[in-house]
């Protein structure tokens, strides 16, 4: 086995990097792949919260890098998926506690034992970004259909290219199709026209994402959620399957009409 390293990044904060990382990781592991998640947001960790594993943390990424524990000791097994692990970030340190070469070494050590390594990024373009981008084989850029998020995504895509890790692939998160319809939100076409990279996922805005993250239960486990479905589709595209994008807007209108009639 030689794992592929996927780094999930965005530039702007709050667009859904951590949610995306957790959900793709769970979706990949649901089909029996061995997956490990690394929280690269040292000092502001929260991947453990979204995955519902925060009370199991003993050692973290910085402990591994500084040699206070072995890699295996810092790996926390997921509650539901026995082939999914998390290596949490340190909460009491900052981005300078590790270097890009530390991350490359760490991933190389993990590669033989896994199919996928997912890395969650901090917001920003400084040291923390360089740490998580250094080991990446595939970079996913998450953005929201908002002008400010798209602007930052553009900057990050440029930086990914200049680190020779491109071309990145795009995840558009929290798309509200009725707002797009009214012309109050950028459409998928508006975003992809500016960013000009290939799209790997469109995740609709869905309240169940927030409620399930609060419960520490990634939404991808919810078979009825449309966002969960979108994350499962991203996982399938990462595995190389050709999954068409569902005609979201049309579907939405149809249900809306249905509810209005009732």
């Amino acid at each position: 086995m030689a794992a592929k390293v996927i780094t999930v990044t965005s530039g702007k904060g709050g667009v859904g990097k951590t949610t995306t990382t957790a959900n793709i990781a769970v979706a990949l592991s649901m089909d029996g792949a061995k997956v490990v998640c690394l929280d690269g947001d040292i000092g502001l960790r929260n991947l453990d919260v979204v995955m519902g594993l925060e009370n199991r943390i003993v050692y973290d990424l910085v402990d591994v890098v500084e040699g206070r524990c072995r890699l295996r000791q810092a790996m926390i097994r997921d509650k539901q998926n026995s082939e999914l692990y998390l290596i949490p970030a340190a909460q009491t340190r900052d981005k300078n506690a590790i270097s890009p070469s530390d991350m490359v070494r760490l991933c190389d050590e993990l590669r033989p034992d896994f199919d996928w390594i997912l890395i969650d990024s901090p917001a920003g373009i400084e040291r923390g970004f360089r740490n998580v981008i250094a080991p990446a084989d595939i970079v996913l850029v998450v953005t929201n259909p908002e002008v400010s998020a798209v602007r930052d995504a553009d900057r990050i895509i440029g930086l990914v290219e200049s680190e020779e890790k491109g071309p990145a692939r795009l995840v558009i998160n929290r798309l509200n199709s009725s707002m797009v319809k009214r012309g109050d939100m950028l459409s998928v076409d508006d975003v992809t026209e500016l960013l000009a990279i290939s799209l790997i996922g469109i995740v609709p805005e869905d309240e169940s994402v927030i409620s399930s993250a609060n419960r520490g239960q990634p939404v991808v486990n919810d078979t009825k959620s449309r966002a969960g479905m979108a994350f499962r589709d991203i996982a399938r595209r990462l595995r190389g399957e050709d999954v068409p994008f569902p005609p979201m807007e049309v579907k939405d209108d149809f249900f809306k009409k249905l509810f209005r009639v009732n």
Partner: peptide
Amino acid sequence: LKAAELGALRDKLGD
């Protein structure tokens, strides 16, 4: 110098 080389040097200096 290509980006990978210069980037690596910058990181090394950063260390």
